[in-house]
C-alpha cells in the first residue's frame, strides 16, 4: 500500500538513513497524494521548541558550577575512611606520614603537573619517564597522572624542545592547540604559542607523526631536518613542509634549537616576527610606531645580550629608532 511505503520512507528521512533514491521516491509519492503531502510537511517541520531552553540551561548551570571544582567524590571518600581508621590506631607520629600519603594520592587524582618558563627565561626539565624537555621563554607544559600509564600525553603551549626516551609500548603524544605530535622516539622542536598564528614542528632526530585538529584525517610524518609549518590566516589553515639545516657541531646556530642555549637566531624574518621573539626572550613588550618597519627583513644572532645591545645590533643593518620605558619598547623611524 502507498501509505505504508510513505510511512517507511518518512521514517528513513527523519532518521537520516534514507538514500538519495528513497528521498526522490518519497517526493514522487507525495506529489501524487496532496493529503499525505500535507501531513508529511507537518511532521517534517516538527522540531524542538527552543523557547525557554536557554533559561533552563542557565539555571541548571548555576546549580552545578559549585560541584565542578570539588574533587571526585568517591575516590576521596574511600581514602578518607581508610585514613581515619589508620590514624586512630597509629597515633600522632603517623599522622604526618598519613597526611603526606593521603595528599600524594589526592594530588595524583585531581591535579595536573605544570612546568612554566617565565618570560625572559628558558628552562630545562626532566619528565617522569626520563624524557628531557627544554622550555623557551613564556612556554607552558603540563601533564597529569595518566602520564605514567599506557600513554605519555603532554599538553604544550609555547615552544619546547624534546629529547624523548624511546618506549614503543607507551606512545608519547604532544598536544597543542592546533595540532598533535605523535613521537616515535626522537628529539624535536615544537613551537605553538597560543598568541601566534603559526605552529611549527621541527625534527632533529628520529620520526614524528603530526595530526592537525582541523583535518584529523591528514597525518604528516616528519623525518630529521624536516619542519612542518601550520599558518592560520583568518579561518583558513595552510600547511608547508620545509627543510632546515643541520647544526654544525657545537655551533648550533639553527633557530629551531639555538634558543636552548639562550641564543636568539633569526634568518630572513620580518621585524614583526623578530620582535615577538624578543618580547619573550627579554620579557618586554615591543610596539611599532611606524607600521612599515614591521615588514623589514632581518637576519641575526643574539647571545645573552641585553635588550639594548640587541636593538643596537639590529640598528646596524636596519635604520630605526627606539626608546624604552620600563618594560615597554617603542620602535620608530
Amino acid at each position: 500500500m502507498k501509505s505504508e511505503r510513505i510511512a517507511v520512507l518518512m521514517a528513513k528521512k527523519a532518521s537520516r538513513s534514507a538514500s538519495q533514491e528513497e528521498l526522490e521516491e518519497l517526493e514522487q509519492l507525495l506529489t501524487a497524494d496532496p493529503g499525505a503531502a500535507f501531513t508529511a510537511s507537518i511532521i517534517d517541520r516538527m522540531g524542538n521548541n527552543a523557547a525557554g531552553q536557554m533559561e533552563f540551561a542557565e539555571q541548571g548551570w548555576e546549580k552545578i558550577v559549585p560541584r565542578l571544582s570539588a574533587a571526585p567524590v568517591t575516590a576521596m571518600r574511600i581514602k578518607r575512611g581508610w585514613w581515619a581508621a589508620a590514624a586512630a590506631v597509629v597515633g600522632l607520629t603517623a599522622t604526618g606520614i598519613g597526611w603526606q600519603w593521603w595528599r600524594h594520592q589526592h594530588l595524583a587524582i585531581a591535579s595536573r603537573q605544570e612546568i612554566t618558563a617565565p618570560l625572559g627565561q628558558t628552562m630545562k626539565a626532566l619528565l617522569p619517564d626520563g624524557t628531557t624537555v627544554w622550555l623557551n621563554a613564556g612556554s607552558k607544559l603540563s601533564y597529569d597522572q595518566r602520564f605514567n600509564n599506557s600513554r605519555r600525553d603532554i599538553q604544550v603551549s609555547g615552544e619546547i624542545f624534546l629529547d624523548v626516551i624511546k618506549n614503543d609500548a607507551r606512545p608519547f603524544v604532544v598536544h597543542t592547540r592546533k595540532l598533535d605530535v605523535h613521537v616515535l622516539g626522537t628529539s624535536f622542536n615544537i613551537k605553538a604559542y597560543d598568541d601566534d598564528n603559526r605552529s611549527e614542528v621541527a625534527v632533529v632526530g628520529g620520526k614524528v607523526q603530526v595530526i592537525m585538529h582541523n583535518s584529523l584525517e591528514k597525518k604528516v610524518i616528519l623525518l630529521p631536518h624536516e619542519k612542518l609549518i601550520l599558518s592560520t590566516i583568518g579561518k583558513t589553515d595552510s600547511l608547508s613542509l620545509v627543510n632546515f639545516p643541520e647544526a654544525n657541531g657545537k655551533d648550533s646556530l639553527v633557530a629551531e634549537t639555538a634558543w636552548r642555549e639562550q641564543k636568539l637566531v633569526f634568518k630572513n624574518e620580518t621585524f614583526e616576527s623578530v620582535a615577538r621573539k624578543m618580547e619573550r626572550q627579554f620579557n618586554v613588550s615591543i610596539s611599532f610606531e611606524d607600521e612599515s618597519l614591521k615588514k623589514e627583513i632581518l637576519s641575526g644572532v643574539f647571545e645573552k645580550e641585553g635588550i639594548v645591545k640587541a636593538l643596537k645590533l639590529l640598528q646596524m643593518t636596519t635604520p630605526f629608532h627606539f626608546r624604552i620605558q620600563q618594560r615597554q619598547v617603542y620602535i620608530s623611524k
Binding site: 501509505s3 505504508e4 510513505i6 510511512a7 517507511v8 518518512m10 521514517a11 528513513k12 527523519a14 532518521s15 538513513s17 496532496p34 493529503g35 499525505a36 500535507f38 501531513t39 508529511a40 507537518i42 511532521i43
Partner: peptide
C-alpha cells in the same frame, strides 16, 4: 537494532499521518 528504530519510526509516521489527515485543506 537500527532496523527496530526505523520500524518504530515508520509506525509513528503512519499513526501521526492518520491522526492529522482530517486537518488537510
Amino acid at each position: 537494532s537500527p532496523k527496530t528504530v526505523d520500524a518504530q519510526l515508520a509506525i509513528a509516521m503512519k499513526k501521526l499521518a492518520a491522526r492529522l489527515q482530517c486537518f488537510a485543506p
